[in-house]
Design a protein around this nucleic acid. Sequence first.
DNA 1: TCTAACGTTTACGTCAACGTAAGCTTTATG
DNA 2: CATAAAGCTTACGTTGACGTAAACGTTAGA
Lengths: 142, 142
Amino acid sequence: MAKKAAHTAPDNGSDISTEYSISQLSQEFDVTTRSIRHYEDIGLLSPNRRGQTRIYSQADRTRLRLILRGKRLGLSLEDSREIIDMYEPGKTNIDQLKKLIDAIQLQRHKLNQQLDDISKLLKDLNQAEADCIDALKTNGSQ
Amino acid sequence: MAKKAAHTAPDNGSDISTEYSISQLSQEFDVTTRSIRHYEDIGLLSPNRRGQTRIYSQADRTRLRLILRGKRLGLSLEDSREIIDMYEPGKTNIDQLKKLIDAIQLQRHKLNQQLDDISKLLKDLNQAEADCIDALKTNGSQ
DNA sequence: TCTAACGTTTACGTCAACGTAAGCTTTATG
DNA sequence: CATAAAGCTTACGTTGACGTAAACGTTAGA
């Protein structure tokens, strides 16, 4: 009785079985539905279906969030796949685990490199800004 | 008299007029000559010529370094162009300066976002690694 | 009932950032 | 002298990450 249409909204917000439509995710993350379907095409997402319609779970939503974070960091979708696959359960194969640890080292290295790059860039930007302001003061009165 | 062939190597290393060939830069930065020429095609570099041959200055080398840093950060070449142009002298136009300061704010915002993303990712990686090691210990003895 | 909003598949198009190949010139060296 | 190494231009090809359009199904509301 307390059950409304499940594809509209379940009765509470923090349900573990919360579902999302493709357009909901599209709006929430400001990404086109085309992109979301593309991520599925290349196997980065695999939502359940109700009939033909895609139904996204919390886990799917998290994966999408990770994909988009990767994009902001300039990773390719393949890079993101590697990272995201690290979170998957059932990686109990020992060789897999060792390979994973190596992959993690590598990613960490890349990220530290990025941190370095960013701090340099931020310094540069600060300097550039200071120069601008300086030029405005010096030059603005002429 | 102390002048050796200028295109081989000037007599010291920190000469302001140091020159580089395309293959030297290619090796130093581990990027193909094709890419370097491409950056020139789209106006990101404009080295002098000795005859037909490109001669890169310190300034050119710096620009290339900035381009590649931008790439590591996932910037498009157009993004890099904007940033790099901030360093150019002769930006004395006041309106330009104000626009520049705005652009700097924007870049700073993006970079801070990236910093946030990276720190999250690093945390995730640490966690993933810990999980791996844990799984190795627990599972490795079976 | 019809039409508007959302969903689907299939498939060709596009854009950035180069890769790759052909064909030519210049320079150094056995 | 010849031939290898580095440089050049021109131009078509490729790859990733979607955009865009067509053509169709389903559901809610006037």
